[in-house]
Design a protein around this nucleic acid. Structure first.
Length: 637
RNA sequence: GCUGGCGUAGCUCAAUCCGGUAGAGCACCUGAUUUGUAAUCAGGCGGUUGUGGGUUCGAUUCCCGUCGCCAGCUCCA
């Protein structure tokens, strides 16, 4: 090999030799993929670069397409530039700020007059024009001085440039549009075949409410129209499983202007909720918990003792009783501590497991409310475990087991775990307390052989925590469970126990929730199954469908038999044809439809149709009852 | 809370741009039909157009306030 050539190891192809100073377009050609339209960028020794970057020396290169995460990001980021390019053509006075790639596509923030939905269509059309013009995208390296000059009219870019290191400042130019950017980018605007601007919103410069409000435009993009269409279809499908829509259709719950953010549970919703609670109680009994219930409104002095008055007051509802300030509880722990303190405790009782399905009220900002997911009143499946410092690890190990067991029952087998440690500021307690608590949680996770992500500084102000995120069938992640070690609350309340040596000591308190909020968890359940509940959870498990009025009595009789056996059955006695009743039962996502006609009434059977449309044929009512009871008892998913 | 969009019958929507006192489907009720595995037919009931004010001869429509709903407000060139 001579000095004038350099060898590049191309992944999936082999070695390629090109002249020194050649770019990766040449490497691509040498690898037999000249002008491959799928190639967006190149990864050189792990660093993503433009295809137009020069080969600096011997290296390993792999070409990136939309299928590679890095290639995908380049593509989306280039689309953000395309968006800014189009916006500047239509609104020359607009000042572009930043335009990153996000999970759901990309966005670009502009300082510009409010953008309307009509503008969005015009911008999309302009973007299509720029794509058709197929401008090459060129990288420019700038000195700070030149960069400041080039972007002098845009205070946001100036602010950014001032923060950058000299020598690292680059910009990209396509046609008449140049944007400050780290890159890399796709080589030509023509590669961005399918774009959809999805929504627009206000956002603050650098995410700070005190800064100027900007106009944010969101979008998605794909290398071809088919993938865009598939994406849009998936969005529509997600709307169909929105728990707010299903909650209304299935008559589970409602919201009213008279109580913003406060859910009203209907009969069907309560059945679902009670089923969840029933299971919850069963498991907690098995794990040695005892259940308590503490009041909703308590004297403000309690919240002063607990520290909520100082740390959480802005989220609390306050009231006055007999001229004395009180507050509606935002958390259950202070009440739980009063119960603990109501009598003496011995180390022999530990770990003392006390659970409470406590309804808490929190004043959340109006803008964050969202169906059952974010409400102002919800029921926590709370529990507090009182123990000695030595028992923390074992108690946490046990709780982790409980968490996984419950999630599995509801069909959530993919669970992500995070350990959050002491916040840098505003935490209470000694270094030693924190070290012991953090080590205890980490050790418990290790014992259970659970992979976890460490979030340094993300703990509560009173102690470290483990958070559990369940993944639903759409791949979305929901934080539900939490285990928090707390050394300080028992101390504030002067809670004690009598130790083995006869001295009074302060117990450790472990706060934990598994479902988190019943409301939210039920919302997750609804979206996870799109309203098609497994039998054990479904508020209406069975619909009995007489084929005509003549068989109404038989249908009633079957329904009564099922109900007596603990099966949630309803008869559809409307004067409608069978097809109509089947259709309606399907739309209500009932698990089984039992058709009753002459043949069935004569033989004491029902013809069973499953929700998936399968015809299970005629079945003796007693056999069906046995089958459903079994499916129910085993909580089949 | 902030920005933008939206509030019309129990539900889904039309009429709103360009002011002339609201219309359909589903649901519900009545009748006919007596039904065999995803919608039988006909008739009927149902709305001070979220709410308060303003402009106007006249406001669902235009303007202002207010309440509620929806989306976004973490991702850093």
């Amino acid at each position: 090999m001579s000095d004038t050539n350099v060898t590049v190891q191309v992944q999936g192809f082999g070695d390629v030799t090109v002249p020194v100073g050649a770019d990766f377009v040449a490497v691509l050609a040498a690898a037999g993929r000249a002008n491959d339209p799928a190639v967006l960028a190149v990864s050189v020794d792990g660093v993503t670069l433009d295809l137009t970057a020069a080969v600096a020396g011997p290296c390993r290169a792999s070409f990136l397409t939309f299928e590679d995460e890095a290639g995908f990001e380049v593509f989306r980021h280039s689309t953000a530039h395309l968006l800014a390019h189009a916006v500047l053509r239509l609104f020359p006075e607009a000042q572009p700020t930043i335009g990153p790639v996000v999970e759901e596509g990309f966005y670009y923030d502009f300082a510009v007059r409010p953008i309307t939905p009509e503008d969005l269509a015009a911008i999309e059309a302009e973007m299509a024009k720029i794509v058709a013009e197929n401008h090459p995208v060129a990288r420019l390296e700038l000195s700070r001085e030149d960069a400041l000059k080039a972007f002098a009219a845009n205070p946001f870019k100036v602010e950014m440039i001032q923060a950058f290191e000299e020598g690292s400042i680059t910009a990209y130019r396509q046609g008449e549009f140049t944007d400050l950017c780290r890159g890399p980018h796709v080589p030509r605007t023509g590669m961005i075949k399918a774009v959809k601007l999805t929504k627009m919103a206000g956002a603050y410069w650098r995410g700070d409410q005190n800064n100027q409000q900007l106009q944010r435009i969101y979008g998605v993009s794909f290398p071809d129209a088919a993938r865009l269409d598939a994406y849009l279809a998936a969005i529509e499908a997600a709307k169909e499983r929105d728990h707010r829509k299903i909650g209304q259709e299935m008559d589970l719950f409602s919201f009213h202007d008279e109580g913003t953010g406060f859910p009203f549970w209907h009969g069907k919703g309560m059945t679902l909720r009670n089923t969840v609670v029933e299971y919850w109680r069963e498991v907690h009994r098995n794990y040695g918990y005892n259940e308590i219930l503490t009041p909703a409104i308590l004297n403000m002095s309690l919240w002063q003792t607990s520290g909520h008055y100082d740390h959480y007051r802005k989220n609390m509802y306050v009231t006055t009783i007999d001229d004395v300030p009180h507050a509606v509880k935002p958390m259950n722990c202070p009440g739980g501590l009063l119960v603990y303190k109501s009598r003496m405790h011995s180390y022999k009782e530990f770990p003392l497991r006390v659970a409470e399905l406590g309804a808490v009220h929190r004043h959340e900002m109006s803008g964050v409310l969202h169906g059952l997911f974010r409400v102002r009143s919800f029921t926590q499946d709370d529990a507090h475990i009182f123990c000695t410092p030595e028992q923390v690890e074992a108690a946490v190990v046990e709780t982790i087991g409980l968490v996984f067991e419950m999630y599995k029952t509801f069909g959530f087998t993919e669970v992500a775990v995070e350990l959050s440690t002491r916040p840098l500021q505003g935490s209470i307690g000694t270094d030693e307390m924190w070290q012991v608590a953090e080590a205890g949680l980490a050790a418990a996770l290790t014992t259970k052989e659970i992979d976890f992500q460490l979030n340094p500084g993300d703990g509560a102000f009173y102690g470290p925590k483990i958070d559990f995120h369940v993944k639903d069938c759409m791949g979305r992640s929901w934080q539900c469970g939490t285990i928090q070690v707390d050394f300080s609350m028992p101390e504030r309340f002067h809670a004690t126990y009598e130790a083995e040596d006869g001295t009074r000591k302060v117990p450790v308190m472990i706060h934990r929730a598994i479902l988190g909020s019943l409301e939210r968890f039920i919302g997750i359940l609804i979206e996870n199954c799109a309203g098609k509940f497994p039998l054990w959870l479904n508020p209406t498990q069975v619909k009995v469908l007489p084929v005509g009025d003549k068989f109404a009595d038989y249908a009633k009789q079957v329904t009564a038999t099922l109900t007596a056996a603990g099966i949630r059955a309803e008869a559809d006695l409307r004067n409608e044809k069978l097809g109509k009743k089947v259709r309606d039962a399907q739309m209500q996502h009932v698990n089984y439809q039992l058709v009753c006609g002459g043949r069935e009434a004569e033989n004491g059977t029902v013809s069973v149709r499953a929700r998936n449309g399968e015809d299970l044929g005629p079945m003796a009512v007693a056999d069906l009852v046995a089958r459903l009871k079994d499916e129910n008892a085993r909580r089949v998913l």
